[in-house]
């Protein structure tokens, strides 16, 4: 062991130390959860579970609402991401490129939803949503998910616009490029990293909303957290672990989907 350590330089030592640290912090918990979801009665101080069984997964799969909840979750999250893109891009562009009166007030206003506890907003909003007739509907849930997502989306896009600057835009403008050409050939490719992180961030935030969905969705809009969170008050760890894995897989699936879509869009744009 000593010889092995001696053979390594300081740099390699630091690298392997970091590697081990990352494995402990990020990979080990995932492995533990995976193992927990197929274990029976895994008690301290046993290092490994005493028995394996798929019971937890079976009871998750048996839930007749599982498919419905997955579809609703994707539907809600997809619409939330779409609305965020539509709203955040113009807002971020305006905030980064123009100076106008009361800009700091508007900035503060746009950020305020994440400073106020969401549950308070939801209770107040439920009243209004009932009167508008969109409570207990998917569309109401989509709107209420904008509260915790839009401020982040605007921040992310604004950073992207500021990094890009306006000189390229002006150049294209002088050369006679129209609004759409400018957006699709300059802004979109340069903003791609920001758009990517916006989509992932808003998707994950929307996915994790329990209280807002429960109050505005009124139990008729069943997303995955609605099935998953009640299990926290039972002591069957295996089911909770199974749900957690399912929960972690959704963003991965979404990223994959988004990547494919983006490649297709960019290829189409380049051809034009």
């Amino acid at each position: 062991m000593r010889l092995f350590l001696k053979g390594l330089g300081k740099r390699e030592l630091a690298t392997s130390f970091m590697l081990i640290l990352f494995i402990i912090l990020f990979i080990l918990p995932f492995v533990t959860i995976g193992l927990k979801s197929v274990s029976v009665g895994w008690r301290w101080p046993a290092l490994l579970p005493s028995g394996l069984s798929l019971d937890a997964w079976r009871s998750i799969m048996k839930d007749p609402k599982l498919i419905e909840s997955l579809v609703t979750t994707f539907k809600v999250a997809f619409l939330v991401v779409l609305l965020n893109l539509l709203l955040a891009i113009p807002a971020a562009r305006a905030l980064s490129h123009y100076m106008f009166k009361g800009k700091s007030i508007i900035e503060g206003l746009l950020l305020s939803p994440i400073l106020i506890p969401g549950i308070l907003l939801a209770m107040g909003l439920q009243f209004t949503m009932i009167q508008f007739g969109i409570a207990d509907k998917v569309i109401g849930v989509v709107f209420v998910h904008l509260i915790p997502t839009l401020p982040y989306a605007i921040r992310v896009m604004r950073a992207g616009y500021e990094r890009m600057g306006s000189s390229l835009y002006e150049q294209a403008s002088v050369l006679g490029a129209g609004l759409f050409t400018r957006f699709f050939t300059i802004a979109l490719p340069l903003l791609l990293p920001s758009i990517r992180s916006l989509m992932l961030l808003t998707f994950v935030i929307s996915l994790g909303q329990y209280a807002l969905t429960a109050i505005i969705g009124g139990g008729t809009v069943i997303t995955l957290p609605m099935l998953y969170y009640p299990y926290f008050s039972s002591s069957n760890d295996a089911v909770i672990a199974g749900f957690s894995i399912l929960f972690a897989l959704l963003p991965l699936l979404f990223i994959g989907f988004v990547e494919v879509m983006m490649r297709l869009v960019i290829r189409a744009v380049n051809r034009v």
Binding site: A214, G219, P230
Partner: peptide
């Protein structure tokens, strides 16, 4: 249809619906 929801939440929902005069609920 069994709708999973914690008791405090559907109580809150009913309270708000009462306040908003929503006479056709979902529960």
């Amino acid at each position: 249809n069994r709708q999973p929801m914690n008791t405090e939440e559907f109580m809150q929902k009913l309270l708000t619906e009462k306040k908003a005069n929503k006479n056709e609920g979902t529960i």
